[in-house]
Design a protein around this nucleic acid. Structure first.
Length: 601
RNA sequence: GGCCCUGUCGUCUAGAGGCCUAGGACACGGCCCUUUCAAGGCCGCGACACGGGUUCGAAUCCCGUCAGGGUCACCA
């Protein structure tokens, strides 16, 4: 598919000569890319009528919902929650849940993002019912036919203002404290012909009938709407030939027979555009349900991917202050340009891209796990169970009534209804999610946990635990019972999988546990070496019995032994229960590590 | 700023005029358990945004104020 993309570009004799032409080539290559990549999703256009026909027209109407993400990156929790609600409604009613890719933004849509989206959805267990994915970029013929028809009927028209002109109008309106409302310019027939002949770039706008618009919302109640003086002609086809979201969403929802549209409340006002379009195109209006917005706890504003960048920026400012370093120092250390960093630091509307972030984080000592998880993928990497994420997300803006909180997916499906959805925005509360996950891990079956742990390791390929067999993984899981996320199991037992010479000692632990009181800890380790050396039955039980005997005889506390041992074996003070760790490590490694540690004093 | 939506513990919420001395969960504080980190057990702290109505009676209905959020793109 790379070849196709390259070929498409290289055959253009005059790159940049024609915007339209480039756009259409880009569209073609993009479609090709998607087609090849998703070979098992085949062509779909022909199937749309089938999907519609499959809706039983008799008796009760089958509920059909959809999730329609735009492929611009990983799925984030807001999107996941929207998907979940749509999925739950379909499953609860025995309806259908369809997936559509809204890739009309050529500049931002990528095939990689499509792949990530599907992965995340699968991970969450939100399976969709259309075997062939629907890509808007492959339905241009359909949109264009309808748009041309609207133009012919005088319900839409070409508009020739440039982006700059529009921006100037808006700025003007803002200056005089007015709200900018687009006014259709009066063009003579001659002007139109001339623009047409020039091939002047244009958009197509829908001539929004000037009237009050009202609709009922399943969440917010009846009579939502917008007054006549607020409506304006909006763009339905961009100058690159792609339909806008507003147009494509209306057409596709109708074609797919969508009966219920559950989406974020940020779309509330868009709805009047959509119902006006539905009227013009003769479509039925689906039932709308606008979900409360998920807010970031840090800012109180809509949760967004930007929140991660925000955290990095904030910590960078702190780092510069506390380390008394300058911006050029930082730039040199992380290999980025000074002015790049400067604009980023000063302007919180800008963001570091995914390749720049780690460079800065490394220098200022921020770990990936220090960033707030926003993307579904982040939660997967942190070691959350999809079922607890789903459970938590379901409760953000919905509840079954009463005190019920912990629910399996099956239970969620069973009790989910539209009228359990609330109206007020909800802050995303990570502590509560953590608690849900802790609980889910504690009650999950060993098989379930093992599967989740393997999935976690697959998402964290750098972990030394990768490659361990199932028995070893199961053992780790049981040793660390009580963990909150799988990452904790990894962090606290990864030392068991390092080579003996890879152990690095945490200076604070060494000071506190080994060196303090004239090297008391080191002395203990020496004694332990003698104590453990003769043991042949290297089991946790035997080790514990032996050490306990020693402790009693010497009138010590177990803690006096366990902590120095932890430092010697792991380099720090945190580990699974110590005797189980010893057993897991085995005798040779245990003794080698103690000796190696003793050699450092 | 215009328009729109929304206001119950710090957070998510239960609550459909008397079942409310406002319930649950997370967080927080204290105690217990404990070989580390966790987990667990018990106890505690803690809210109807404010002001007016309506009503015998209001967290619940109405109005206003205030506050928060959303949205004002050739992004979705």
């Amino acid at each position: 598919m790379r070849a196709a993309a390259t070929a498409g570009k290289s055959t253009d004799p005059m790159p940049g000569a024609s915007q339209d032409r480039n756009a259409s080539i880009k569209i073609q290559t993009m479609c090709l890319n998607f087609a090849v990549m998703t070979s098992r999703f085949v062509a779909f256009t022909a199937l749309l009528p089938i999907i519609a026909v499959m809706t039983p027209t008799s008796q009760k109407q089958t509920i059909i919902t959809r999730f329609a993400p735009s492929p611009t990156g990983y799925l984030h929790v807001g999107g996941a929650r929207t998907a979940l609600f749509n999925w739950l409604l379909a499953r609860h009613t025995g309806g259908r849940f369809l997936l559509r890719i809204e890739d009309t933004d050529l500049a931002r849509s990528t095939e990689q993002a499509v792949h990530q989206l599907l992965e995340d959805l699968k991970w969450l267990g939100l399976n969709w019912d259309n075997p062939e994915l629907i890509f808007q970029s492959k339905r241009l013929d359909i949109y264009n036919r309808l748009i041309n028809d609207l133009i012919a009927r005088g319900l839409a028209y070409k508009a020739y203002e440039t982006t700059e002109e529009l921006a100037a109008f808006r700025a003007q309106a803002e200056k005089s404290k007015r709200n900018y409302v687009y006014k259709r310019p009066v063009l003579t027939d001659e002007q139109c012909r001339q623009f047409e002949a020039e091939g002047r770039p244009h958009v197509v706008r829908f001539a929004m009938p000037v009237q009050d618009y009202q609709f009922d919302d399943a969440v917010l109640g009846a009579s939502q709407g917008v007054a006549a003086n607020q409506v304006q002609d909006f763009v339905i086809r961009k100058s690159d030939g792609m339909p806008t979201y507003h147009f494509a969403v209306v057409v596709d929802d109708a074609d797919m027979g969508i009966t219920h549209v559950l989406r974020g409340q940020e779309h509330l006002l868009n709805t009047v555009n959509h119902i006006a379009l539905q009227q013009a195109l003769g479509y039925q209006r689906p039932i709308y349900a606008h979900l409360p917005v998920i807010l970031a706890p840090e800012t109180g504003e809509k949760l967004s991917k930007r929140d991660r960048d925000r955290k990095i920026r904030q910590r960078t400012h702190e780092w510069i202050k506390s380390s008394k370093k300058t911006l050029p120092d930082l730039a040199a250390a992380c290999g980025l340009a000074v002015d790049r960093l400067e604009t980023w630091l000063k302007n919180d509307k800008t963001q570091l891209d995914l390749s720049e972030q780690p460079k800065v984080m490394k220098i200022i000592g921020l770990k990936e796990f220090d960033l707030p998880e926003i993307m579904v993928h982040d939660f997967r990497k942190s070691g959350y169970l999809p079922e607890s994420l789903n459970n938590f997300l379901a409760l953000l803006g919905w509840n079954p009534g009463g005190d019920r909180e912990h629910m399996t997916m099956a239970e969620l499906v069973e009790v989910f209804t539209l009228d359990g959805i609330g109206k007020a925005n909800a802050k995303f509360n990570r502590e509560k999610l953590l608690s849900f996950n802790t609980d889910a891990c504690a009650t999950a079956s060993p098989e379930r946990l093992l599967k989740a742990f393997k999935d976690f390791l697959a998402a964290n390929p750098d972990s030394p635990i990768n490659g361990a067999d199932d028995a070893a993984l199961a053992k780790l899981l049981s040793m660390k019972a009580g963990f909150r996320v799988l990452r904790e199991v990894e962090e606290k037992s990864r030392f068991l999988f390092l080579r003996d010479d890879q152990i690095t000692y945490d200076p604070v632990s060494v000071e506190k546990i080994l060196k303090k009181n004239n090297g008391e800890g080191f002395a203990t380790l020496k004694n332990l070496l003698e104590l453990l050396n003769p043991i042949t039955d290297w089991t946790a039980e035997k080790l514990e019995a032996t050490v306990n005997e020693f402790v009693t005889a010497k009138q010590l506390k177990l803690n006096n032994i366990a902590q120095p041992l932890r430092v010697a074996l792991s380099g720090g003070t945190i580990s699974p229960p110590i005797f189980q760790s010893l057993e897991f490590l085995g005798k040779p490694s245990t003794l080698a590590r103690i000796e190696r540690c003793l050699a450092t004093q």
